[in-house]
Simulated scan of single mutants.
Amino acid sequence: MRYAVDLGGTHVRVAAAQSGCEWRHQHRSRRVAGMTPADFVALLSDLIREWGTGRPQSIGVSVAAVVDDEGYLLASENLGWKDVPLRRILADAFSCPVLVETDVFCGAAYETRLGAAAGATSALYLGIGTGIGHALILDGRVWRGARRGANAFGHTIVDPSGARCYCGHQGCLCTEASGLAQADKSASDVPLQRLALSIGNAVTLVEPECVILSGGALNQAWFDLDRLAALIPAFTYPAASQPRLVRSYAADPNLCGALLLSMEQS
């Protein structure tokens, strides 16, 4: 059995499948505050024992963090983890091939292969949950940046005099339009306008064929896909082609992408 994990800012999702994303077992729980890598290993161990699947054939981990080529977690503000050799820790614990990758890169890989970006040469994938991450798909491949840090769409500045962000800057998009920012607020047009501003700037810079949105915050009262599509052109260079704006077809593209990437590696 192959395992996939989405270790997010608020929740942990674990699923097991023989292949593809046809899950035989699934688990979702709120991530306990202060969870350590050892706690994470214990959670996986408990699920493997509970599900009776035996030693995993592979484990793919999608994590809200900057991750290097060796599966070394460099930094994650939401998890509070830094400089963690997560791939090695899991490989030692479960004696199987392990892939650890930034969550939105996993989601973008899935969308490129089997989702809304299949057949497109360019796309922007946005994961809007506790925070806001992104991945660019250029010439059909996921662009990870010069040092794998091209994933922080939520930390584009939309209001220099705005609220202080957990990254240390002021007025980041995720202080307005993320699931965390809007968790206890009534519907307002402001977060949608801020999101449209950032997407409009991205369209001006890259002109992607499509923009794919995913994440739990899309179910909150403030989000409206049609309204967002109507707002974006006002923030885009007029000569740029407007992208197709869609919600991901998958319930959890990051989880599916983690599975697919781990299968390719192993």
Rank of each mutant, 00 (worst) to 15 (best):
G115P: 02
A117W: 00
A117L: 02
S122W: 08
S122A: 04
Y125V: 14
Y125Q: 01
Y125D: 05
G127M: 08
G127W: 06
G127D: 06
G127V: 11
I128R: 09
I128F: 10
T130Y: 10
G133T: 03
A135C: 14
A135E: 06
L136R: 09
I137E: 00
L138P: 07
D139V: 06
G140L: 05
V142Q: 02
W143D: 15
R144S: 12
G145M: 07
A146P: 10
G149V: 13
G149T: 06
G149P: 05
N151Y: 12
N151K: 10
N151E: 14
H155C: 08
H155T: 02
H155Y: 13
T156G: 14
D159N: 14
D159R: 01
G162D: 05
G162H: 00
R164I: 05
Y166I: 11
C167F: 10
C167E: 01
Q170W: 06
Q170N: 09
G171M: 01
G171N: 01
L173D: 00
C174G: 04
C174I: 00
A177F: 05
S178D: 03
G179P: 05
Q182D: 08
Q182A: 14
D184Y: 15
K185N: 14
A187V: 07
S188K: 10
D189A: 14
P191H: 15
L192M: 06
R194W: 07
L195I: 08
L195Y: 02
L195T: 03
L197A: 05
I199A: 03
G200W: 09
L205H: 11
L205N: 12
V206A: 01
V206F: 11
V206R: 05
I212D: 01
L213G: 03
S214P: 00
S214T: 06
G216Q: 02
A217T: 02
N219T: 13
A221T: 12
W222H: 11
F223G: 02
D224R: 12
D224V: 04
D226H: 13
R227D: 04
L228E: 05
L228N: 00
A230G: 12
Y237W: 15
Y237R: 08
P238V: 08
A240H: 00
A240D: 02
S241L: 07
S241P: 04
S241Y: 06
S241W: 04
